[in-house]
């Protein structure tokens, strides 16, 4: 789409775009290029620049079970967080969309958790789910040793998923509700008059009309779970116990800044970058074309 009426001062037009171009060059493209360079080189131990090592950083990484562990934990985290956050949000949005008494309260309050910083959530849920204080202690009192995320890897994973999902239900809810309210009420009413019940209407009218939203949210949720999880992991489990919650983004941080292994961290960054790019391209190329009911 283009405007018919434009301003003719080319120089001014270019000048206006320069600040943003400088910013994305300096803080996005240069670092991304730098990561690429580091990923294929190794720093010489006594200075003197980097040595080209080809793909050896990647082969080393992909031969390392610790790295595969971080991929696996990231995938487990991403899928369980996405399914839970979207499932609960969709249920809530469908119910709020029925506009029963008090729906305005629900519509307002269910968004609030999204305002909370992930690290603050990490601290809060660390207390709420702590084995020795808070509420899980009650459970441990009744069944000693049942719950201890500090020792049990699976439980640590459950704990970070709960904290993360609690925040992202609010986000998904906003989108589901907006999409549901865009569906004409007459459509639902006509179906009801034809004798279809609530579940039938959800299955045959609302869900099909929601598919673009659902696919959009799947991609956003997966991407965010790869990136926004850092704060929660850092403050709740620090990747432990025994690397059970060492997500990819946490391992990049750890290897890069604590281990000072720039080449290894850069190679991991490239892999994660490819994953995010693949997801985004998939969304724009494939989903936007295929899933369209408008």
């Amino acid at each position: 789409m283009e405007k018919r009426t434009l301003f003719t001062n080319k120089g001014l037009g270019i000048a206006l775009v320069v600040p943003q171009v400088l910013l994305i060059f300096t803080f996005f493209y240069w670092p991304a290029g730098q990561a690429l360079y580091w990923a294929f080189t190794l720093e010489r131990p006594w200075g003197g620049g980097n040595e080209w090592v080809g793909t050896s950083n990647f082969t080393q990484l992909l031969g390392d079970p610790v790295y595969w562990n971080s991929i696996l934990t990231s995938l487990i985290f991403a899928f369980s967080a996405t399914v839970l956050a979207m499932g609960v949000a969709l249920t809530m949005a469908l119910l709020v969309d029925r506009e029963l008494r008090g729906f305005r309260v629900y519509r307002t309050v269910l968004v609030w958790p999204y305002a909370i910083a992930a690290p603050a959530l990490g601290v809060a849920f660390r207390f709420i789910l702590a084995p020795e204080a808070g509420f899980m202690a009650y459970l441990n009192h009744a069944f000693p040793g049942l719950w201890n995320p500090a020792l049990n890897g699976a439980q640590a994973m459950i704990a970070i998923v709960i904290a993360y999902v609690w925040k992202y239900i609010g986000y998904n809810f906003i989108f589901f509700l907006a999409a549901l309210q865009a569906i004409p009420k007459s459509l639902i009413e006509a179906a009801a008059m034809d004798g279809s019940g609530l579940l039938r209407r959800i299955r045959d009218i609302q869900l099909p009309l929601l598919t673009p939203t659902i696919f959009f949210l799947v991609v956003i949720n997966l991407t965010d779970s790869f990136t926004d999880s850092f704060g929660i992991v850092d403050l709740m489990t620090a990747g432990g116990p025994n690397r059970a919650t060492e997500l990819m983004v946490y391992k990049i941080f750890f290897d890069g800044f604590k281990g000072l292994d720039y080449s290894g961290a850069a190679a991991q960054s490239i892999i994660l970058m490819l994953l995010v790019i693949a997801l985004t391209v998939f969304q724009f190329r494939f989903l936007e074309r295929r899933v369209h009911y408008k």
């Binding site: 405007k3 301003f7 037009g13 775009v17 171009v21 850069a266 994660l272 995010v276």
Partner: peptide, 29 residues
């Protein structure tokens, strides 16, 4: 509101930054 050479390049360059979240380029940034 302007027309100049390279406008679409700039547009796409900004668009692509969506695929480069801070967390994945954290060490070089």
């Amino acid at each position: 509101y302007f027309r100049y050479w390279g406008k679409m390049v700039v547009f796409w360059a900004i668009f692509i930054t969506l695929m480069l979240p801070l967390e994945v380029r954290i060490v070089p940034t």
